[in-house]
């Protein structure tokens, strides 16, 4: 049978003796609401949403967690995550999270923000929340562009990268250099954990999940601000297929934004 025939006989392989509850090893978390995500095919936002919900479910903290959604493509994050959530004005998620965490210190708080949100319009809020050592987790989705508004240059755009506002490639003599927010806030004493991960391969997805787990544990121990930068793709605005966009992450993003821990709590060093 050639591949074509196989494709037509799509149900042929359902192994009824394997697809039973006893052998279940992976299923979508319940807290990820079962509706279609509005994200473009292949977009990393969906993976990070799912990982957050997986960790929150596995750590059994569904009732303790409060998320803060940003403005950007993930503005509707609260529609997908079946937990307490608050929407913030563009860039202000860490300010809103500060308020929530200070009034409800027993809750576990996280913000979910894009690079335009966190590193452009919200830079002041981000840096000052980190400098105050606010005890919450910042999940920072770096896709190097303003995705939602059709792919304008962000502070994180790579040198030479073509965007709608840098049609000839980002010229650093005019627009300055990419802002490495993670390295920047890692200097601040109030920040306890900074790491950079990606979700473009299965191994990196696993590492990102570990990082989210650790960050919530540190928050339970009141260790200070945690920031996880996740390198993500934006196939639509990068004008690439999802596969090409993941290749771009591997070949262009990671050399500039190296993966790994940037700061870990002292006793772990």
């Amino acid at each position: 049978m050639d591949e074509k025939d196989l494709k037509l006989n799509e149900t042929e392989f359902l192994n009824e003796d394997i697809c039973v509850a006893e052998y279940l090893v992976y299923k979508k978390p319940e807290t990820l609401i079962d509706i279609d995500l509005h994200y473009c095919p292949g977009c990393g936002h969906g993976v990070v949403h799912r990982l957050l919900m997986e960790v929150i479910e596995e750590m059994n903290i569904v009732d303790k967690v409060i998320g803060v959604a940003p403005v950007g493509c993930s503005v509707f994050a609260y529609n997908y995550m079946d937990i307490d959530m608050q929407e913030a004005a563009h860039g202000r998620a860490t300010a809103v999270a500060t308020g929530i965490k200070r009034v409800l210190p027993d809750k576990l708080v996280f913000t979910y923000q894009g690079d335009g949100d966190l590193a452009a319009i919200g830079t002041a809020e981000t840096i000052h929340a980190c400098n105050r050592g606010e005890n919450f987790l910042i999940v920072f989705i770096n896709n190097a562009v303003y995705g939602m508004t059709s792919g304008q240059m962000a502070p994180t755009t790579l040198p030479g990268m073509v965007t709608t506002t840098t049609p000839f490639g980002r010229d650093t003599s005019i627009t300055g250099f990419p802002l490495k927010i993670s390295e920047l806030v890692a200097q601040l004493p109030g920040v306890c954990y900074v790491t950079r991960t990606s979700v473009h391969t299965a191994g990196n997805v696993r590492r990102t999940k570990k990082a989210i787990q650790k960050a919530f544990e540190y928050q339970m121990q009141n260790k200070g601000t945690c920031l996880i930068e996740v390198l993500s793709n934006c196939p639509s605005n990068w004008k690439m297929t999802p596969l090409e966009s993941n290749k771009f992450i591997e070949e262009e993003m990671i050399p500039f934004y190296p993966l790994g821990d940037i700061k870990v709590p002292k006793e772990e060093k």
């Binding site: 192994n15 992976y26 979508k28 990393g44 969906g46 799912r50 979700v199 391969t201």
Partner: peptide
């Protein structure tokens, strides 16, 4: 793990 739309359920014996 890599599926952004969480459409896959996996079983392993």
């Amino acid at each position: 793990l890599v599926c952004p739309d969480a459409v896959i359920t996996v079983y392993r014996k």
